[in-house]
Simulated scan of single mutants.
Amino acid sequence: MSGGVDSSVCAAMLAREGYEVIGVTLQLYDHGAAIQKAKACCAGQDIYDAQRVAEMMGFPHYVLDYESNFKESVIEDFADTYLQGSTPIPCVRCNQTVKFRDLLQVAKDLNADCMATGHYIRRIEGPDGPELHRAFDGGKDQSYFLFATTREQLDFLRFPLGHLDKSETRRLAAEMGLNVASKPDSQDICFVPTGKYTDVIEKLRPHAATPGDIVHMDGRVLGQHRGVMYYTIGQRRGLGLGDDTGTDPLFVIRIDADKGEVIVGPRKELERSKLWLTDINWIGKGEFGPELDGLPIKVKVRSTRPPTPAHLRLSNDCIIVELDEPDMGLSPGQACVFYAYDAAAARTLGGGWITRTE
């Protein structure tokens, strides 16, 4: 229970239906800076809101201190990924480690029958066991952030809100008299209360920002940067190059952390059609192996975009996704999530982490 409307409605629905509910909120970071942040989850007010929902619905509520787990598994990884010139997705790491590994084990230790969350995604019993499907509300679908959910975890997890749209969730909250019915959705990374991710990296790695060259793709050195952590693939603003760079606007095309270089070029050079992946999680039919080479799938490379057609290539120990149409601004560190190749692209098949693009 993060203290938001979704997890609150999830818990309250289950309590109203007669299940024995135990509410758990995770304390993940120092609330001091974030306690007044209205649109970041898991702040001090959120713990209070979760407690009030539990009191109103008559079930026990506990706050577990997972600050050290979260710092090691999510925040440290977040900082190191940026310093490597990649773009991290901390919400996936949090689900993959703290929530669906550590908290799930707590639920099993309590002899719970399942662990329910307020995520917008559907768990459907298929012929070969439970399947993960995109949410009914496409605008709130969270399958991109849950691609790393394993089959074993899926056996134990439940997602009661997956068939609802957000307006229906808020209606239920108001109907049950929950204090969070009109609470705004969280929009920021929970441990970045200012919305400026470099503040977190500077605090964790105070001497990591090493200046270097901004280099055009043609080899010209155009200027100096403050450190690779301040730049992301596809960035145009804030390069500080002035007007003497040619006629075309320049974008960050690539980041070479080993050389300490930020490589820039025209917008067309951002196009990518091949993605090399690692750490694959497969929850589709059968096992992940060579027989899937050439499989048509649909993929998401950003959480906010619909799945698009692609093909899976497995050869010479490489796992490659070939996009049917090139995309722009893709970066190592991002997730590539697989979906079934059909009109709805509803079933989530898993995914992996992008290590390089071409």
Results as ranks from 00 to 15, higher is better:
residue 10 C to M: 15
residue 13 M to P: 10
residue 15 A to L: 00
residue 16 R to Q: 10
residue 16 R to V: 00
residue 21 V to A: 00
residue 21 V to N: 00
residue 32 G to P: 13
residue 32 G to W: 03
residue 42 C to Y: 14
residue 45 Q to A: 15
residue 46 D to S: 04
residue 47 I to E: 02
residue 49 D to T: 11
residue 59 F to A: 00
residue 62 Y to I: 04
residue 62 Y to N: 04
residue 75 I to D: 06
residue 85 G to L: 01
residue 88 P to R: 01
residue 90 P to E: 06
residue 94 C to R: 03
residue 97 T to N: 06
residue 101 R to M: 14
residue 105 Q to W: 11
residue 109 D to H: 06
residue 110 L to E: 09
residue 116 A to H: 09
residue 119 H to I: 13
residue 126 G to S: 11
residue 130 P to G: 11
residue 131 E to V: 11
residue 134 R to D: 07
residue 135 A to F: 13
residue 139 G to F: 10
residue 140 K to V: 11
residue 141 D to E: 08
residue 143 S to T: 14
residue 145 F to Q: 12
residue 150 T to V: 14
residue 165 D to C: 15
residue 175 E to W: 03
residue 176 M to R: 03
residue 178 L to A: 12
residue 179 N to M: 08
residue 181 A to S: 12
residue 184 P to W: 11
residue 185 D to T: 10
residue 191 F to I: 15
residue 192 V to I: 15
residue 196 K to S: 12
residue 201 I to S: 08
residue 202 E to V: 15
residue 212 G to R: 01
residue 216 H to R: 00
residue 219 G to S: 07
residue 221 V to N: 00
residue 222 L to P: 02
residue 222 L to A: 03
residue 222 L to G: 02
residue 225 H to K: 05
residue 227 G to K: 02
residue 238 G to D: 09
residue 238 G to Q: 11
residue 241 L to Q: 02
residue 245 T to K: 03
residue 255 I to E: 01
residue 258 D to Y: 06
residue 259 K to W: 02
residue 262 V to A: 02
residue 263 I to N: 02
residue 266 P to F: 00
residue 267 R to I: 02
residue 271 E to W: 10
residue 271 E to H: 09
residue 274 K to A: 14
residue 277 L to E: 04
residue 285 K to A: 15
residue 306 P to K: 03
residue 314 L to Q: 05
residue 315 S to R: 13
residue 317 D to I: 07
residue 319 I to D: 09
residue 320 I to P: 10
residue 320 I to M: 08
residue 339 Y to A: 10
residue 345 A to L: 12
